[in-house]
Computed example of a mutant assay.
Amino acid sequence: MERAVSESGQYAEDVEQRAAEWVARLDGSPLSDGEKGALRAWLGADPEHRAAFEEASATWRELGALRHDPGPLRTVLTPPRQASAARKAVRIGALVGLLVLAAGAARFQFGDPWLMLAADYRTAPGELRTISLPDGSTVELGPSSAIALAYGEDERRVRLLVGEAFFTVAPRAGDESRPFVAEAAGGTTTALGTKFVIEESGDAADVLAVEHQVEVASGAATRDGVVLSPGQEVRYRSDGRIGRIRTRDIATATAWRRGMLVFNGARLGHVVETLNRYRRGRIVILETELAQRRVSGVFPTSDLDDAIDTITTELGIGSRSIYPLITVLY
């Protein structure tokens, strides 16, 4: 009996998700003849299909204003008191995710097309990969990361296009006299030693020296760069600003190489950015103020659903999600 109930619940969830997917698809380019036929066949296969489709369509229309004003969602996502309300909230959360992700469905399935063209090496969400470079150096790519090589006669240059990377640089010795330069977010890191880490975050990058020294400069900076020794980290921005040098525990900062994520008073916004590299779909923070809340914890990368549960409990916040598209934190 329990199995029958479980299968029935799973079927209902599958129907609701499929209905949401059709509604999102209808909001895009016109359906092909084949897609029109598939939609008609799906709607006619079961009365529950049409009921779920009509409810999804109505909710989609109600949530159309969310692109410009997320305010209504705050009311919708008020913690429900009844089981039926809970199911509706989950369904609405799914539709919100589809609203946000409809335009990026191809990116979710196949990856960023620009990166596919520009990158020489890249990783999928949750994937770690070690790349051997032509000069004997290696790059350990974190999840959802990509690099492009630009080796020339005068320098060995690697561009970190997105994500995080641990560099182990072959020294300048013997016939190898070219400097090793890693580029990210409009700035450069020149190896004066052998090991360092760069984490790119759009218009900024964090550089941590692991072994020997590195010189960090922002491309738009009007002053000289800074030299980091092991355990020192600095953030620079693409507009030329370089932050203060700070000390960081190397083992903690590189725990991702061992399948662990360690946060010590990190902003929730940063934590979410990191978690998003390890899983398909997206975690979205509803309110700007919430992104500034601080989070601490140690999470295995093999069980990030538990990390989300722990974070929401620690901060006393709510979440709604539909696997594998989106999780909304509010």
Rank of each mutant, 00 (worst) to 15 (best):
A307V: 01
A119I: 11
D154Q: 13
A185W: 00
V226H: 04
A4Y: 09
D154E: 05
W42H: 04
M116T: 13
P79Y: 00
E155N: 15
A204M: 12
D224G: 14
A89D: 00
R67C: 05
R277G: 02
L304E: 08
A38T: 11
D175A: 11
S6N: 10
R172N: 05
D46A: 04
Y323A: 13
T274M: 11
S29H: 10
E211Y: 03
T78F: 00
E164D: 14
E289M: 08
D120M: 05
G265N: 05
A220V: 03
G152M: 01
E54T: 15
D135I: 05
D306C: 12
S84K: 12
L141D: 02
D120G: 04
G174I: 01
S6K: 15
S132R: 15
A119Y: 04
G28S: 07
E55K: 09
A220D: 01
G281N: 01
R67L: 02
R3L: 13
K36C: 12
R87T: 11
E16L: 07
V100H: 09
G111M: 15
G152A: 00
E287V: 00
R293G: 00
G318W: 03
G240R: 00
V210E: 03
N276R: 00
G163F: 02
G225H: 08
V197E: 08
D69C: 02
T288G: 06
L63Q: 11
A266T: 15
I242D: 07
P143R: 01
V271S: 08
A86P: 02
P300A: 06
T247F: 09
W114K: 14
P70Y: 07
V298Q: 11
A217Q: 15
G174Y: 04
G269H: 10
T274K: 11
E55N: 14
R293M: 02
T252M: 15
G64C: 08
G28Q: 09
G111Y: 08
H270V: 08
T288H: 12
R178P: 06
G37M: 14
A102N: 14
V226Q: 14
Q17R: 14
A4W: 05
A173W: 06
G111D: 10
D303T: 10
R178D: 06
L63C: 12
W114T: 15
G187E: 07
E200Y: 07
A185H: 02
A173H: 14
L304W: 02
Q292F: 13
P80F: 00
S84Q: 12
V96S: 09
I245Y: 05
A51H: 14
G225M: 05
D306P: 06
G104L: 03
L31T: 05
H212M: 07
G111A: 10
V210W: 02
Q213K: 13
R61I: 02
R320P: 01
A20S: 05
D305R: 00
G187I: 13
T130F: 02
P324C: 03
G97C: 03
R293V: 00
I322T: 14
R18E: 09
D112I: 10
G187M: 11
A124C: 11
E127W: 01
E2A: 05
Y330M: 04
I147N: 00
S145V: 12
W256K: 01
P171F: 02
F263L: 01
L315C: 10
E13W: 11
S132H: 14
G93K: 01
A205N: 07
A146D: 05
I283V: 12
A165L: 03
G193E: 08
